[in-house]
């Protein structure tokens, strides 16, 4: 009995020692020399592995950061959208560098073609993925630029920050958004854009990317940008450009003056998180506004076609602001 015990103890120990030696040898041979700062940088990162920085994961990003720091002594080309400036400062501290401040960003859905604004004309019967539907057809409303509403962006989001609104059929971004850009990549129509969050979370953007001419665009959607150019004229900062029948507000130049919002004849420009405007004198129109906005907008369109007529503008300004307010919840 004792023999058995002793024999097994000895043999097992021997196996253990041999294995340890082999392991040590192998470990020495295949040792990877690694900058210890990579681990430190990785610890400072949010560990979301979202890929928003353009790298596969936080570890790869950390490696790239350390690499850049050792070779070029700057990490200005890199940014972690999840952690934002705080994280980048922490990283820079580890690497002994400094970074310039970057504005935090947020994903913005640039389509307001809800079921009401862009009524459904066609029924789509197929897999619920925008990528496929986009290849198949223009969309249930007929707008070839609009949101397909099948939620590829929702599926792509790792942060629970974008959800479909069942009522409008459009995705809505909430403040969990870290601007990683996953939804931007997932959207086959490039509807979602990363824009600066803006001061006090306030921002103004054109909620449409339709490049069709006014007529065809409006046929499918009441709130399409028709490329009339009113906003371009009214903008005091040259922040708005008009290209291919579509207005675009450059967030760098936009000073959030809100002048463009009321002049838009189709309510395509959205302002977010602004306090409500003080109601202008034309209060009496409140009642009828809901009833006949389409007519007014058409009128506005016709005026615009003539490329003159400044007189109507003030009226428009008064009328439009409240509509703009009510829409903002939809798009936030």
């Amino acid at each position: 009995m004792n023999d058995v015990l002793i024999f097994s103890v000895i043999s097992l120990s021997a196996i253990g020692i041999v294995a340890a030696i082999v392991l040590y040898g192998v470990a020495q041979k295949f040792k990877v020399i690694e900058d210890p700062r990579i681990d430190e940088v990785e610890d400072a990162l949010p560990a979301a592995n979202c890929g928003g920085c353009g790298f596969a994961g936080c570890r790869n990003f950390a490696e790239a950061l350390v690499d850049s720091a050792t070779q070029h002594e700057n990490i200005d080309d890199f940014f972690c959208p999840v952690g934002g400036t705080d994280t980048m400062n922490a990283v820079a501290e580890i690497l002994g560098l400094s970074v310039e401040e970057k504005d935090p960003q947020i994903a913005v859905v640039r389509c307001n073609g809800s079921r009401q604004n862009a009524p459904q004309k066609i029924v789509y019967d197929g897999p619920a993925t925008c990528a496929f539907a986009h290849n198949l057809f223009a969309g249930e409303s007929g707008c070839p630029y609009g949101c397909l509403g099948l939620g590829d962006c929702v599926a792509a989001c790792d942060f629970d920050a974008i959800h479909m609104n069942a009522e409008t059929g459009l995705p809505e971004v909430n403040d969990k958004c870290v601007a990683c850009g996953a939804c931007v990549k997932a959207c086959p129509r490039d509807i979602i854009e990363l824009r600066p969050k803006g001061k006090k979370d306030r921002r103004i953007f054109v909620s449409c990317i339709n490049e069709e001419k006014g007529g065809p665009a409006r046929k499918n959607c009441k709130v399409a940008c028709i490329g009339c150019g009113k906003c371009v004229k009214v903008c005091p900062f040259d922040a708005i450009t008009l290209e291919n029948n579509l207005a675009y507000i450059d967030p760098e130049k936009c000073k959030l003056c809100r002048k463009c919002v009321p002049v838009c004849p189709t309510d395509a420009i959205h302002e977010v998180n602004f306090p409500p405007r003080k109601p202008k004198p034309e209060k009496k129109e409140d009642g009828e506004k809901r009833g006949q906005p389409a007519q007014k907008k058409e009128a506005a369109e016709k005026q615009e076609a003539g490329k003159k007529n400044e007189a109507g503008k003030k009226n428009e300004a008064g009328k439009k602001n409240e509509a703009g307010e009510s829409d903002k919840t939809n798009n936030e």
Partner: peptide, 10 residues
Amino acid sequence: DSVMDASGYK
């Protein structure tokens, strides 16, 4: 001009 093709795209 652009017209709608079978998929609805112009």
